[in-house]
Computed example of a mutant assay.
Amino acid sequence: MRYLTRQFAIGALRRGNGIEQFLGGIEISGERAIRWVAISPMNRRYRVSLHTVRDPDDDQVGDLPNLISLDPADEAYVGEGRELALSEDPEEAMALAEHLTDANPGRWVNHAVAGEEYMDYVRSRRDAPQST
């Protein structure tokens, strides 16, 4: 089981470890993209960021921050995403992330695990029956 309980997610943040959630696919200007939300501890605060990148449709790609961003103007550094909120409280940061991105409260994972969710997403698309 890769999903964190609420208490484990909060504990991870308090220990200085980030959490994230794969949000799925989206189409932007006719281009296939994927999104995920991350909460990263930094300087006694918690940064909520939204990442929107090109979908390479490759079930071997799990390092999502290295994919081509579709929000490059909002990123000072590759992979940092668009900042949505800052909070001094980890529970509030999670609530903000869920509210601002429609993230599911029961689907948070440790940092760098959203890539596994993406790979599962690609495989499920390929395994889906094709309509004729």
Results as ranks from 00 to 15, higher is better:
Pro56Ile: 03
Ser87Met: 09
Val53Asn: 08
Ile26Trp: 01
Asp74Trp: 00
Gly79Ala: 11
Ser69Arg: 02
Leu84Phe: 11
Ala9Val: 07
Leu23His: 06
His111Ser: 14
Phe8Leu: 14
Ile28Ala: 12
Arg6Trp: 11
Gly16Glu: 01
Met1Ile: 13
Ser124Val: 07
Tyr118Trp: 01
Asn104Trp: 07
Ala33Ser: 04
Asp74Cys: 09
Glu88Trp: 06
Leu70Pro: 00
Ala93Pro: 08
Arg125Gly: 05
Ala128Asp: 06
Gln7Tyr: 09
Arg54Met: 04
Ala93Trp: 05
Gly79Ile: 08
Arg6Phe: 06
Tyr3Gln: 02
Glu31Phe: 08
Met42Ile: 15
Val53Arg: 00
Gly30Trp: 11
Arg2His: 13
Gly11Phe: 12
Ala33Phe: 02
Glu80Gln: 14
Pro129Thr: 08
Gly30Leu: 04
Thr5Trp: 06
Asn66Cys: 01
Arg45Lys: 15
Ala103Asn: 03
Asp55Gln: 04
Val78Asn: 05
His51Gly: 01
Glu75Ile: 07
Pro72Thr: 01
Asp102Thr: 13
Thr5Asp: 11
Pro65Asn: 07
Asp63Val: 13
Ala9Phe: 03
Ser49Arg: 07
Asn104Thr: 13
Ser40Thr: 15
Ala38Pro: 03
Arg123Glu: 13
Gln60Asn: 11
His99Gly: 04
Thr52Phe: 07
Gln130Gly: 10
Glu27Val: 09
Thr101Gly: 12
Ala114Cys: 10
Asp120Pro: 08
Asn17Arg: 13
Ala112Val: 08
Leu23Trp: 00
Ala114Met: 11
Leu67Tyr: 04
Ala85Tyr: 05
Pro105Lys: 10
Gln21Ile: 10
Val37Lys: 07
Asp59Thr: 07
Asp127Gly: 09
Gly24Glu: 04
Arg126Glu: 09
Asp63Thr: 04
Pro72Ser: 12
Gly25Pro: 03
Tyr121Lys: 07
Asp120His: 04
Pro65Ser: 02
Ala103Tyr: 02
Thr5Lys: 10
Gln130Arg: 11
Ala73Leu: 10
Ala128Met: 02
Arg107Asn: 00
Ile68Glu: 15
Arg125Lys: 14
His111Val: 13
Arg45Ala: 15
Tyr77Ala: 09
Thr52Gly: 02
Gln7Glu: 15
Asp55Gly: 00
Val48Leu: 06
Leu86His: 15
Asp71Ala: 01
Thr132Gln: 15
Asp71Tyr: 12
Leu50Trp: 01
Trp36Val: 00
Gly25Glu: 11
Leu84Cys: 08
Glu27Gly: 09
Glu75Met: 02
Arg107Gln: 14
Trp36Ala: 10
His99Thr: 15
Pro129Cys: 05
Pro105Glu: 12
Val48Lys: 06
Ala103Thr: 04
Arg82Tyr: 03
Gly115Lys: 13
Leu86Pro: 05
Pro41Phe: 02
Ala85Trp: 00
Ala9Leu: 02
Gly62Arg: 03
